[in-house]
Design a protein around this nucleic acid. Structure first.
Length: 692
DNA sequence: ATTAGGG
DNA sequence: CCCTAAT
């Protein structure tokens, strides 16, 4: 599906095929039968041709690489080789392409599918045993997580190898290249998955893997997986599948090797694991950084890639909207926008990190008021959650309270002449479009996406006692269709990726990836299935950007050109999932004169540099005034006191207070913190100095 | 968690 | 106010 879509993208312009929407069953069937639609075929052909080129090149390069050693080889590559042995060259070609492109995307996409997920999980499992050297499988979650990471890294590496190819391709077919990459990625991923599946199957049968869960999942998925894979429409997958049957073991082995290689060389692995903590912490704190500083540190191939890919888009946007900056600003306020140049904009779709779990009862009220829609989502999700808990274990229930969901940034272009009302409408439309399209709910555990829907909370490690605080939810757009109407030009590359991703998810799953199936969900005001963004009348256009960055996986989504390579080479460690969060700014609350007075007084006594104490002494009961706020206010007070009264804004502060501010500031500048006992003296001095 | 500063 | 680096 994705594949097709992308192709369409590149070639036909910006059509986001509604195909994904097509009944799954139908699709499956078609795939299964290997029936390909005309359009698909065309796309495929093109792709194939490119693939052929790439293949040729890659092969030559591969040989060279092989001679060099395994340092650079990517998993995909290895796999490729193996496949080559027993597989069609074609496959190899694909693989190469895949390597060229982002693999991360693929992973993401893959994740979307439950079936795929399962497979992945399985795969990871197998991998984990060998490559990770970890004892037996501890938790499924663990394994899967690790695995996914591994896969990613591997992919990245492969990318490095073939980076040049990709560039080539792009040059020839700008748009196509992008789509291609994405597709390739997907392909690769799929392949891997497939292999993994096979492997799993083999293992299972061979009784190598005792995992119950594996078996279970396998059994569950089997039917689906078979069907689904074919869906891809790629002849390749099928072929590989059928052929591989026997080779599975071999393949897996290779994969393992690759993995090991990848990891061994560097401590990267460790690093990659470590980060999660940070991420968690962050999440917990709900710290939202507008920008991902990660950019410079990008270690993730995915991440890096995303950057690159996005950049172009950004520029475009900027260009486009530059003149509407004002409006945009407004928008910004509504939704935080990131336009860090290098950093990916797409912030992980909707990351709702603000989920808080209350072990106790009831869901807490949503304080977030970002948007009505949010609330709605919120409710839904929460309700869902509640629902879920009971589902499996009657023993204990896990209560989740979701304070807010974050929505991916929305880009909305509005003419300067547009009215506020139209702006509102635009935003609303965009929102509804997203919601209407369907949202996926993702579960984050320790910053990582939990993909296996079959797992129980208990199994996953989500329970009251455990790390409820490390659980997060994400809302992800499941569809891209909304965008089509707007600007076909902007979307191409980047969007393609996103869309594909989204598509992947959307197709099979109704709406909620993990949990939502509850009737309650529907009630959402937001859910206007019928509402698409209609750009009519006032609204010039509304553009929704939905890139998901929440999860490590999501990172992959974005496409990134050259940088990625470097990043990869340097270190793929950072799996830090920077959750993008758009935490809304605290509401502004100007200091009242009385507050200023209290502040001044406190500072006079305590001095500057003991804001904690100041807070305690003078703003004990003002929860909204943090010591940082007080410090900042002091800063502004000092500034205010120094500038001409005419330049001062806001509620005028009595000159008397300002004088005291200056006096105190001067005093404490000379007398660094003193202990309490001496405060008085200091205060007195200040008083004298100020003449008051 | 605080402090200190830059944005 | 926000965001960070340092403590």
């Amino acid at each position: 599906m994705v594949f097709k879509k992308r192709l369409d993208h590149g070639f036909n312009g910006f059509q986001v095929p509604a195909i994904p929407r097509a009944p799954r069953s139908a699709r499956r069937r078609g795939l299964h039968k290997k029936t390909v639609e005309d359009s698909q075929i065309c796309a495929f052909e093109l792709l194939a041709s490119i693939a052929g080129k790439l293949l040729q090149e890659s092969e030559s390069s591969a040989s060279s690489n092989a001679s060099e050693g395994n340092n650079q080889p990517s998993t995909s590559k290895d796999v490729k080789r193996e496949q080559q042995n027993g597989d069609k060259p074609f496959m190899a070609g694909w693989t190469n392409q895949g390597s060229c492109g982002d693999s991360s995307l693929a992973s993401e996409l893959a994740s979307q599918n439950i079936n795929l997920k399962c497979i992945l999980k399985e795969f990871s499992h197998a991998e984990s045993d060998d490559a990770l050297e970890h004892n037996s499988i501890i938790n499924n979650s663990d394994c899967s997580q690790k695995v996914s990471e591994d896969v990613k890294s591997v992919i990245c590496k492969s990318k490095t190898d073939f980076g040049n190819y990709s560039s080539k391709v792009e040059g020839d077919y700008p748009h196509f290249g992008e789509s291609c990459d994405a597709n390739v990625k997907n392909e690769i991923q799929r392949q891997q998955e497939v292999e993994g599946l096979k492997t799993e199957g083999v293992n299972t049968f061979s009784s190598k893997e005792p995992m119950d869960s594996c078996l279970k999942s396998l059994a569950a998925m089997d039917p689906d997986s078979n069907v689904k894979l074919p869906l891809r429409q790629d002849p390749v997958p099928d072929a590989s599948f059928s052929r591989h049957g026997n080779d599975i073991m071999l393949v897996s082995r290779d994969d393992d090797e690759n993995l090991s290689r990848c990891f061994k060389p560097s401590t990267k692995i460790k690093a990659s694991r470590t980060p999660p903590r940070i991420a968690d912490r962050r999440i917990r704190k709900l710290l939202n950084s507008k920008y991902w500083k990660v950019a410079p540190k990008l270690k993730d191939c995915e991440l890096s890639r995303s950057d690159g890919g996005l950049k172009p888009l950004y520029r475009k946007r900027k260009t486009f909207c530059s003149r509407e900056r004002c409006h945009r600003d407004i928008l910004f306020k509504r939704r935080k926008m990131f336009d860090q140049s290098s950093v990916v904009i797409s912030d992980g779709g909707f990351s709702s990190e603000s989920v808080s779990n209350s072990p106790e009862k009831g869901m807490t009220e949503d304080k977030t008021a970002s948007a009505a829609m949010l609330h709605g989502a919120n409710r839904v999700s929460s309700s869902v959650m509640g629902h879920q808990a009971p589902y499996r274990s009657k023993d204990s229930h896990v209560k989740f309270s979701i304070k807010s969901f974050r929505v991916p940034e929305l880009y909305i272009d509005v003419p300067e002449t547009a009215t506020v009302g139209s702006l509102k409408r635009s935003v609303m439309e965009a929102v509804t479009a997203i919601l209407g399209g369907g949202l996926h709910v993702g579960i984050l555990l320790q910053g990582r996406k939990v993909r296996d829907d079959n797992r129980t909370l208990l199994q996953t490690g989500i329970s009251c006692k455990d790390n409820l605080d490390s659980v997060g939810f994400t809302l992800e757009p499941s569809t891209v269709q909304t965008s089509p109407p707007m600007c076909s030009d902007d979307l191409p590359p980047l969007l393609t990726c996103d869309s594909s991703q989204l598509l992947t998810s959307s197709p099979g799953n109704p709406v909620l990836e993990s949990v939502i199936s509850d009737p309650l969900t529907d009630p959402l005001p937001l859910t206007n299935s019928g509402n698409h963004i209609e750009s009519n009348n006032d609204t010039v256009s509304s553009h929704i950007d939905t890139t998901d960055k929440t999860t490590p996986d999501s990172k992959a989504l974005v496409a990134l050109p050259a940088m990625s390579m470097d990043a990869l080479a340097v270190a793929p460690l950072n799996q830090k999932t920077r959750h993008s969060e758009l935490v809304q700014r605290r509401t502004r609350r100007p200091f009242s004169v009385s507050e200023v007075e209290a502040l001044v007084h406190a500072v006079e006594e305590l001095g500057t540099g003991r804001w904690r104490d100041v807070k305690l002494c003078a703003f004990e009961n003002a929860d909204h005034r943090t010591y940082v706020d007080l410090k900042d206010k002091w800063k502004t007070l000092v500034h205010t006191a120094r500038i001409a009264p005419q330049q001062r804004r806001g509620e005028p502060v009595p000159q008397e207070l300002l004088d005291r501010v200056l006096a105190a500031h001067a005093y404490w500048s000379q007398h660094p913190a003193k202990q309490h006992g001496k405060l008085q003296a200091g205060t007195l001095k200040i008083m004298e100095a100020s003449g008051k």
